[in-house]
Design a protein around this nucleic acid. Structure first.
Lengths: 195, 195
DNA sequence: AGAGTTTGGAACCGATTGGTACAAAACACA
DNA sequence: TGTGTTTTGTACCAATCGGTTCCAAACTCT
């Protein structure tokens, strides 16, 4: 019926996501965005209404792909005990923060600091992601031989959640190896059902 | 000798700090800055070289005043036990996050996410602040009847540090009362020397 | 009062911001 | 081979970005 588009929307959104991820909303200019997505202005505004719209789409993409995978791993009973799954996540975060290459951190965490307080529509999406992550931790904590106290699960999940974001923030400060290890060790203490 | 300046540099820097604090670097335009500081362009560029220079000054100001006071409180043996001082800090943070008025969070945390990865000069200052905060927690944790294991102090201080930043990030998501309480309760568990 | 020095404010700067208008190009269908 | 429809690239837009220049105003000192 008509001329087909020459770019793949999915790869374009991925590129946009990574730009927002490590530059934030304001600092990612339209020019940078177009260069990263390898499309021109016409195509951009035809496919995605404006800058904020594509920002929301990259948040949805992150929610679906990254948060989704993380939560799935936390809930996957094939990957060791619940405690193992939580610690594996933290080890991975600590490792990626240690390697001085990747300083981009967690898009959810960055976006919370960057825009949650200034845009209700964005805040809504971010809150939903935080909630999904919290539930992932809950599920992992519930997965024990002797079913733990629900209140312990709720409170501990939230402690683990805040440790997760804290580690992400510390990663931005340039984490030393011992710092990362210590943070993971504290999570290990938190999720120990004996204490 | 010459015409005296009509504005107070200290109150101007305070105003600039609060603007950077809840808008970040890029989103705080020069026009907003001038309006908040209640000075005009001429005075601004005469007194502070450029935008980045005053950003660095606001960081120093925050370090000196806010971080300084926080660390002093953590080390002040007149304000209860070390554990009490740590919990008082977390209670205050949780309370300010609960009241839906204040969404600005912690300037250090915001700046870490906003600029640490993109500017070495800024990163350096932020790392120093993180280190001061860590030492504050260490001092508070050391202040116990039976002097605790230094390794326990170091590792726990870092766990508390990451919980602090985590709570700040969660505050941006709009904290429920139980969420805040749970996070503080987890810190209480972490700093318990028995576990 | 006059000289010397610094501030304050406005005019101005080129570059960049996010966004629009529009015509040419590229396809599917008849 | 047209015809209709969509994409693409370019030219263009006003507004804003951070920053400079310059001079009158405001002060201290002699």
């Amino acid at each position: 019926m008509a001329r087909p588009r020459e770019f793949d929307p999915d790869t374009a959104i991925t590129a946009a996501m990574h730009l927002f991820w490590d530059h934030g909303y304001e600092d990612a200019s339209l020019a940078c965005l177009l260069e990263a997505m390898k499309i021109t202005k016409g195509s951009f505004y035809k496919a995605f209404a404006d800058k904020k719209s594509i920002y929301l789409k990259t948040l949805d993409y992150y929610d679906d792909k990254v948060i989704g995978r993380t939560v799935r791993n936390l809930m996957d009973t094939d990957q060791g005990s619940g405690a193992d799954r939580i610690l594996a996540l933290f080890e991975a975060v600590a490792a990626s923060a240690r390697t001085d290459g990747d300083r981009s951190g967690c898009f959810l965490c960055n976006a919370l600091i960057d825009r949650a307080a200034h845009d209700a529509e964005i805040e809504e999406r971010l809150q939903a992601m935080v909630f999904r992550l919290e539930n992932g931790f809950r599920a992992a904590l519930e997965d024990r031989p002797h079913r733990p106290d629900p209140e312990w699960v709720r409170a501990t999940a939230r402690g683990v959640l805040s440790s997760y974001f804290g580690l992400r923030v510390l990663g931005k400060a340039g984490l030393s190896k011992t710092m990362a290890d210590d943070c993971v060790a504290q999570v290990r203490r938190l999720i120990d059902p004996k204490i």
